[in-house]
Nucleic acid binder design. Structure first.
Lengths: 237, 237
DNA sequence: TGACTTTATGACCAACAGTCATTATACATA
DNA sequence: TATGTATAATGACTGTTGGTCATAAAGTCA
């Protein structure tokens, strides 16, 4: 491999260095809390160089969003390996989603956050925005595909809409895990802060005594057995 | 009423003026897209004066978040008037939520956004944060109360957890309306932009052909009839 | 009127995203 | 090796913005 290839590799290495530094800081300090100067210092490059590889702070951030979404998708896709029964496959998606939160809580958090469209994704950011949306569609395709298969096989009721069920499942799981995460972080803070007067007001104390993991499981089982499967099995507790 | 009272009223008037100006701009241009100088110009006060009434841009924004949440809560609460049957009451909550979106889409959008905890709510912002959380708890209390009543009356199954059902209902409705909103806004943009190349990448095109209002209704009915009511009525189409 | 309190102002500051003229490096050719 | 050229890196600089504060204005009371 000649010097041409080495240069390409070096450029890719630089890019990866910037992404790594950005990810480390964005995940720790959030988007507004991280400055481009800090990222430049972290990866030992000048700020100007950052802008040779990324057109804006937004674009760098969205590159990490894409990574997060890809990690989630891969966990979900891999969870299907060797499974045939639609019920098992849906359960596996749920487990993979919780697994994603347990292994990458920071990724989970930024994905919960990008629904808001506070970011301007025009011009330079267009490319990465499209890729994020494509990955997002892959996630939905994976989920709706399982439901469609189940309906075709006659295991799920044919009067259910796969999109509707998927939205309901994903939205419910997402909110339960978010509530769990907020509550957990809030309790952590309460311990740290002696006064206890500075809790995160968005950590919903209304559900603070809820067993979130049990609720998540129960919620999924209910939707599967009460709504999805053809002959509702009323005997499940 | 003496000059003391007049002064108090004038101060409240100033405060309301600032809130009105802030609301107008925040709802139109978003939080990062709005500057304190603009708000000051809009309400014909100096920037310094704004900081006599609000400790930070965040606090002013959260004041508007509280308004939005209160409007939503009031619509939900008022929808209960004259209703007795738990099933009707749950349906009314869903209708009120959709009504909230139809009448105040900008309020709906900022409420969808505050789940993210990108904001620092320490120090000065503590007071307003607490009030937002209290209002949030009121919403949950209203919803879980209906389910609990239904269970007590024997209309809903007693092996359901009110919290779990409410989270599922609210999360599902919230996501369906958000997808509808994104899709609608995106189509609006597509028309405006001749090139069509600058669509919002987070507007999920995967669901662009979905009839969101029908889905929202169907989703609620399914959860109510398949999960909640004591003897599942399988005859509903 | 004059002393004193409350309210309002906008020039100012620090922090930040993003730019660009300048410098450094790599490479090709003689 | 010397020289020209293309590419990559730099950091001082700019414009914008959230937030501050010394000063000024307005209101109040004796």
């Amino acid at each position: 491999m000649g010097p041409k290839e080495r240069k390409v590799r070096e450029k890719e290495q630089r890019r990866d260095d910037i992404i790594s530094a950005g990810e480390k800081l964005f995940l720790k300090k959030g988007f507004p809390g991280t400055t481009m100067d800090e990222i430049a210092r972290e990866c030992e490059l000048s700020k100007g160089t950052l802008y040779l590889y990324f057109s804006s702070k937004d674009e760098l951030f969205f590159t990490i969003v894409l990574t997060a979404m890809t990690v989630m998708y891969n966990l979900m896709r891999d969870s299907q390996e060797g499974l045939k029964e639609p019920v098992d496959r849906i359960r596996a998606i749920g487990s993979a989603y919780l697994n994603f939160y347990d292994r990458h809580p920071e990724y989970f958090r930024i994905l919960s956050r990008i629904m808001d469209n506070e970011f301007d994704l025009n011009g330079e950011n267009y490319e990465i925005g499209i890729r994020i949306q494509q990955m997002n569609s892959e996630v939905w395709r994976l989920m709706t595909g399982i439901i469609s298969d189940g309906i075709k096989e006659g295991i799920f009721r044919d009067d259910t809409d796969p999109a509707e069920i998927c939205i309901s499942l994903y939205a419910s799981a997402s909110m339960i895990i978010q509530l769990m995460d907020h509550t957990k972080r809030n309790h952590g803070n309460m311990k740290k802060m002696s006064s206890g007067a500075k809790a995160d007001p968005f950590a919903d104390s209304f559900f603070s005594s809820l067993d979130f993991r049990k609720t998540l499981n129960s919620c999924g089982e209910r939707i599967i057995y009460s709504i999805l499967v053809n002959k509702p099995d009323l005997s499940h507790t």
